[in-house]
């Protein structure tokens, strides 16, 4: 006599499953792929001085052994016209004071990122402290010209 409720519960079940799976997909996309915009990770900043950023821009990744631990927050010049990048990294890293920072690129035309290599000292970097032990971006053109004019053994573009 009355409409059977079965048809609706089946529809509701399908719709409910769809919406839940969809929400899971959205959250996965936003959090896992989109870089954790939704979860606040406790962060701190350190700074690093380079002679040449070579196209490193705010938003570039900060990696340790290839693992993303933060982002470049801003880049500016200091009083001696050296570039200083402020890095926002996870607070739980406990970076030693003799940490080494290098600007690297993924592939020949890839994005620039900063690779940190933690040192062995017991003293830790304080928030906002400056890393001076750095390796600047490899200037491709000068590298090629040096190769062309036979100075390739002199790798001294460093610190």
């Amino acid at each position: 006599m009355q409409p059977s409720p079965v048809k609706y519960t089946r529809l509701d079940l399908a719709v409910g499953t769809f919406v839940l799976a969809g929400l899971a997909a959205l959250v996965f996309l936003a959090v896992k792929i989109g870089g954790g915009a939704l979860v606040a990770v406790d962060t701190t900043t350190v700074r690093a001085r380079f002679t040449n950023l070579g196209g490193l821009a705010p938003g570039a990744s900060v990696l340790i052994s290839g693992v993303a631990v933060g982002q470049v927050e801003k880049v500016e010049l200091d009083e001696r016209y050296a570039a200083v990048a402020t890095l926002r990294v996870r607070r739980d890293l406990k970076l030693p004071a003799d940490t080494f920072a290098a600007i690297r690129s993924s592939g020949l035309i890839g994005d620039k990122h900063i690779a940190l290599s933690p040192g062995s000292e017991d003293i830790l970097l304080q928030p906002g402290e400056l890393i001076t032990d750095t390796e600047s971006a490899v200037d491709l053109e000068s590298l090629i010209s040096r190769f062309a004019f036979g100075g390739v053994k002199d790798k001294g573009d460093g610190k």
Partner: peptide, 17 residues
Amino acid sequence: WASIDNAVKGADVSECL
């Protein structure tokens, strides 16, 4: 997967949505 994780930012996902 690691390069995707690095490259995609929250802004990309919100643009998508």
